[in-house]
Design a protein around this nucleic acid. Structure first.
Lengths: 347, 347
DNA sequence: TGACTTTGTTGGAACGTTCCAATTATTTAA
DNA sequence: TTAAATAATTGGAACGTTCCAACAAAGTCA
């Protein structure tokens, strides 16, 4: 009792077996007799034993821990991504370290190093802007699987799971053009990111496919946030030839665009068509409900975790690149529910 | 090289010192000579050594890990709470296990047990509904500090950090009454939670202090979400004597209430006054900007983490109960910016 | 000079588990 | 009856670190 902590050998003594037997019970081994198993279990309960995974990890040199690093947890897209990961990680009886980098590359380096010291057996990361392939060298060197999610890092020899950004904004533009729009803006996002570039090229390629001239002044970048969206639509509305519709970098921007429209007494869906990107939960319940490109962040989190666990279990780490398909979800913010006559948009 | 992993003894051999010396270098001990320190550091870099914290934990029986459990990470209030915790945890060079329970008590029990097995040295938890004091017995027994955050659990002998819910809704009602309202509803939230009861009593006590009769039909519960808010305002508007204003259970509900008002062609702030609770980031940028009771979830997360770290470091775990003060933030959704004549609300 | 102190360094024993090879007890096969 | 197979258990060595007591070398004091 005086000793700090109850260990396997304590329960072994209490029951009158060896620590090895207790260990076998803990691992649910079929080798141990039913009678002794129940006795051991009883002692475990009575003495208040708690399993020490650190010790086990040390011996086995494998842990049931995975690392999860996101660049912005306050963005509900990433929060849901984390929830998706958490779900499969939990049901596989793993536990996750979660860290938020807030786009800081230094912070990212710190937490990733710390996780590595703690012996994670895999890492899922939505990398901060400016992450380089070299940042994962240490992992590929020691055979620890890494899954890049949402954002890819060129040249990194690790797996990745990203959404089909090009196809997504392509579909958004097609849809708006089908409603009669020709002045379609592309709003929000930082132009120096891979995701922006993919979504932007989808937008541009759709325009050219549809024979709509591309006008550079209609693409206005901003922070990928609600506040950024407000700012972007304000800038776009300063143009001589105003847009009548917009494909937004993401849903946060799209909500900001709606806010900005309202404060100039325009109703999204009626006076201006807005298409978002991501389909966060609020998109469905907002008023007007947001027409958006559904990426299903939670599903993406689940798939990323499954991919990672598969690689952990198989032992071999061959990088796999998955592009997850997206689909357009038509709701109200694009005005598709109105007849042409009812919409008040210039076309 | 053939051996799996580089250890302290490998670098000790490479440099020509003992493993003890290498260990001292790793701990930045002042006892070791500057020359040998630099030699050891060089070897660490060259051989690609990575520190094994599991082994260290085993020996020291203390870890640099804390556990963080939240009931709903998809709610941005809790996401921000987690970010706040993460900030101070990271800068204290700890790392956090984060798990989401989704209000499931079973899941909560599992993850908490798992974290305990992994040797966390403290736990911050926003408990799922139905959590009992007994669920923390194992922690108080072994002297591991626990901080309950957002929701308290009666009878639990652990620290807690909750916001002043009573004062918050009291202030909300006072403000609305000051604008001339007398039919003030209390919308959203599950009535069987402690937070609901505190916020509801603040509402009720304010009414009685102000001499406004309490009308039970004006309090309508719902899920504490955006969808729940839509539902709650719809039910409230079915009343013969409709409310003209509402204090909402939280911001998510308040946004839902705004959505619901709009879909019946009423403008929040102009036709109906809405006050939220929590002050999530979107509250400021939404249109109309939400008048709300500011709780500062990120700050709360930071304070909770500081409290926990203080207890971890001091070694003594005396339960501390902190009630964090709140303040009313007046924005647009309550209509305070308009003169009495401009508001279109029945009063 | 001898007795101390200071500055670095060190081997070995822990920490709590798992794994391996060895052992005993029991059953089956011939 | 003995040999072989099966079932259940076991002691001890590992895993990679930290801590402790001991020690050597050099400097300080009177």
């Amino acid at each position: 009792m005086a000793k700090g902590r109850v260990t396997v050998v304590d329960i072994a003594n209490a029951v009158g077996v060896s620590k090895s037997t207790v260990s076998l019970v803990l691992q649910a081994s079929p080798l141990v007799n039913e009678a002794t198993r129940t006795k051991v279990m009883a002692a475990i309960r009575d003495l208040g034993y708690v399993y020490n995974r650190s010790a086990a990890n040390l011996r086995q040199s494998t842990s049931k821990i995975i690392g999860m690093v996101v660049n912005d947890l306050t963005n509900s897209f990433f929060a849901e991504l984390a929830v998706g990961v958490d779900m499969v990680v939990q049901s596989a009886e793993y536990v996750q370290f979660l860290a938020n980098t807030g786009e800081s590359i230094d912070r990212q380096r710190e937490v990733v190093a710390s996780m590595r010291e703690h012996g994670i057996s895999g890492l899922i990361i939505s990398p901060a802007r400016g992450t380089e392939a070299a940042d994962f060298k240490s992992f590929v060197g020691s055979g620890i699987p890494v899954v890049l999610v949402v954002r890819n890092v060129p040249g990194a020899k690790v797996s990745s799971l990203v959404s089909d950004n090009h196809a997504g904004s392509f579909a958004g533009v097609e849809h708006l053009a089908g409603l009669g729009h020709t002045r379609i803006a592309f709003l929000g996002g930082f132009p120096d990111t891979a995701v922006f570039s993919e979504r932007f090229h989808g937008y541009r390629d759709a325009l050219s496919r549809l024979g709509i001239p591309f006008d550079e002044s209609l693409v206005v970048g901003s922070a990928p946030s609600r506040a950024g969206g407000v700012e972007a639509i304000e800038r776009a509305m300063l143009l001589a030839e105003k847009p009548t519709a917009a494909v937004c970098f993401n849903d946060a921007v799209a909500f900001g665009v709606c806010d900005g429209l309202r404060s100039r007494r325009m109703e999204p869906g009626l006076d201006f068509a807005v298409v978002g990107f991501d389909d966060v939960i609020e998109a469905k319940t907002a008023v007007p409900a947001l027409t958006t490109i559904s990426v299903d962040p939670q599903g993406m989190g689940r798939r990323a975790a499954q991919l990672l666990l598969k690689q952990i279990n198989s032992g071999k780490v061959e990088a796999e690149s998955i592009v997850s398909s997206v689909r357009l979800v038509v709701r109200q913010s694009c005005g598709a529910q109105f007849g042409k006559a009812e919409r008040r948009m210039a076309q």
